[in-house]
Computed example of a mutant assay.
Amino acid sequence: MSMTIYKETYFEASHRLLNYTGKCYRLHGHQWRVEVWITGDVEPESQILVDYNCIKQVVNRFDHQVILNLKDPMVECLSTFQEVITTEGDPTSENLARIIAGMIDESCTADGIPASVTKIRVWESTSCYAQLTFDVI
C-alpha cells in the first residue's frame, strides 16, 4: 500500500553566502525548520513507511553546525577549531532542501525502504522557505 507521511523538525546552524552581496554574506545563524513528505510502500507487518526518528536523525546532522560553501576561505580557518559542513555552492535554503532530501533518500535506500522524499521545505526564517517537489514513485 502506498502512503505519504509528513515530519517537521528543526535544527540550529550558522551559515554565510559567499556569492551574495548583502547581510547574508556575513556568518550568521538561524533556527532552521524542515518539513518533509515521504511517499512509498508501507511495510506490511509493521504498517510503517519510515520511522519518523530516522528523518529527524538525518536532519540533526546539521544541528549546531557551521555550514559553508566548499570554496569559502572560512572553511580552512574554522576547521582548525570545529567541524564544518561544506556544500557545493552556497548553503542557501534552496541548496539545503536538495541536500537534505538526497540524504533522506539515501538513508531509505540503505535501510531497504521503498520510499523517497516527494516534497521538502526548508525554512530559513519564519517567513522564508525553499520548497522542492519531486515526482511520486
Rank of each mutant, 00 (worst) to 15 (best):
T4R: 05
I5G: 03
K7C: 00
K7A: 02
E8F: 03
A13W: 00
R16C: 09
R16P: 07
R16G: 12
L17G: 08
N19T: 10
Y20W: 09
T21G: 09
T21K: 14
G22A: 14
K23C: 06
C24H: 11
H28D: 10
G29C: 10
H30N: 13
W32R: 02
R33N: 03
V34D: 09
E35M: 08
I38F: 08
T39L: 03
D41C: 02
V42M: 08
V42K: 06
E43M: 10
E43G: 03
P44T: 13
E45L: 12
S46L: 12
Q47G: 09
Q47M: 11
I48G: 04
I48R: 07
D51S: 05
N53E: 12
N53H: 07
K56D: 01
K56T: 11
Q57N: 15
N60I: 03
N60C: 05
F62H: 06
F62I: 02
L68V: 11
L68A: 06
K71Q: 10
D72G: 08
P73T: 05
E76M: 01
L78Q: 07
T80P: 00
F81S: 04
I85H: 06
T86P: 02
T87I: 03
T87D: 01
D90A: 05
D90S: 07
D90P: 15
T92Y: 09
N95M: 07
N95D: 03
L96R: 05
A97D: 04
A97K: 04
I99S: 00
G102E: 10
G102L: 04
D105Q: 12
E106G: 11
E106F: 06
E106I: 06
D111K: 13
D111T: 07
G112I: 05
I113A: 09
A115D: 13
V117E: 12
K119M: 15
V122M: 12
V122Q: 10
V122F: 12
C128K: 14
Y129W: 12
Y129I: 11
A130H: 13
V136E: 15
